[in-house]
């Protein structure tokens, strides 16, 4: 997987593990800034994971698979957004609905299309192209951080920069943030806050679709419930990242590193698999509580 003699597998793995958190986090940030906690991220990742690999298998093209997978995820996000915004439903309950629907729909479709509710293996699926610059792989740490990853990882990096520009350097970003912090001002300016929230939801559909695509296309298979809590962890990543794109980049690196370390430890210590599965949730909730303590101590009793 890695050519350089200074290669550090843990860092290399960290980068691939963190990318779904990063992408889902960037998407979730868009709705977060527009004043909505988007708990549907989990379901969106699952939809992206399922449909991108299924479409890739049907069309025989990775690019079409990813594209159609993203479009399906955005459609799914649109339904969630439309019910929430136009029918004025509670965003947490519709978020749960999206997660439930994603779990149910992927299983029902898997059974209907492939006759199984288990793992779907797709033989002969091309693997994701990997960026290789052998001369640069040898640089310690940097080599593992930046090179030798599949191309979707670079979409993750790019999303940080694009999100930063979109949020801080465009009128759209200004209004998006205004929707969250001061919706009356947005309305007074003759704009509709709902439009910016919908835009945020659609962007999170796009990035979660990509996040899901990485999970299944890397494997060449679909595993039931493959999102396994990543959408929820992404919510905490947004919070820990201080609701900024680069903060989210840092926070997802920390989560990726922790998971990568625990995978590594599993190889050496005899830790039961169940505990390895529980580990991401435990560190996430621990991190969340620690940050809330710090915030509480520094900001006092005020919200």
């Amino acid at each position: 997987m890695n050519s350089g003699e200074f290669s550090i597998p843990i860092i290399h793995n960290t980068v691939s593990i963190m990318t779904p958190f990063l992408l889902a986090g960037i998407g979730g940030l868009m709705t977060e800034l527009a004043g909505m906690l988007n708990i549907a991220l989990e379901g969106l990742i699952l939809i992206g994971a399922f449909f991108s690999v299924v479409f890739a298998a049907y069309t025989g093209s990775l690019m079409l698979g990813i594209l159609l997978g993203i479009l399906t995820t955005m459609l799914f996000a649109y339904i969630f957004g439309a019910v929430t915004l136009y029918l004025k439903a509670n965003v947490f309950i519709t978020g749960l609905a999206a997660n439930l629907l994603a779990g149910g729909l992927t299983t029902v479709l898997s059974f209907y299309l492939f006759g199984t509710k288990g793992v779907l293996r797709f033989e002969g699926l091309p693997s994701l192209p990997v960026l290789r610059i052998p001369a640069l792989h040898g640089i310690p740490v940097i080599g593992d951080l930046l090179f030798g990853h599949n191309i979707l990882v670079y979409f993750g990096w790019a999303s940080v920069l694009l999100a930063w520009i979109l949020i801080y350097k465009t009128p759209f970003g200004f209004r998006l943030r205004g929707t969250g912090s001061n919706p009356e001002a947005i309305e007074a300016a003759g704009l509709k806050p709902g439009n910016y929230q919908m835009a945020g939801i659609l962007i999170s559909g796009l990035t979660c679709g990509l996040a899901g695509a990485i999970l299944t296309l890397n494997l060449g298979a679909y595993v039931p419930n493959i999102s396994s809590g990543r959408g929820w962890i992404a919510l905490v990543v947004i919070y820990l990242g201080g609701r900024t794109p680069f903060g989210i980049l840092g926070a997802s690196f920390v989560f990726g590193l922790a998971e990568s370390l625990s995978n590594y430890a599993q190889g050496y210590l005899d830790i039961p698999a169940d505990f390895i599965l529980a580990f991401p949730y435990i560190i996430t909730v621990t991190a969340m509580v620690i940050v809330s303590i710090i915030k509480y101590k520094t900001q006092g009793d005020s919200k």
């Binding site: 309950i93 439930l100 729909l105």
Partner: peptide, 23 residues
């Protein structure tokens, strides 16, 4: 010949609409 998860889809629809104030 259907799988039990169709129940989950029904439940999801209930979740979607049950709080819809506009309705």
């Amino acid at each position: 010949d259907v799988t039990i998860e169709i129940a989950a889809v029904v439940q999801a629809v209930v979740f979607y609409l049950i709080t819809a104030q506009a309705l």
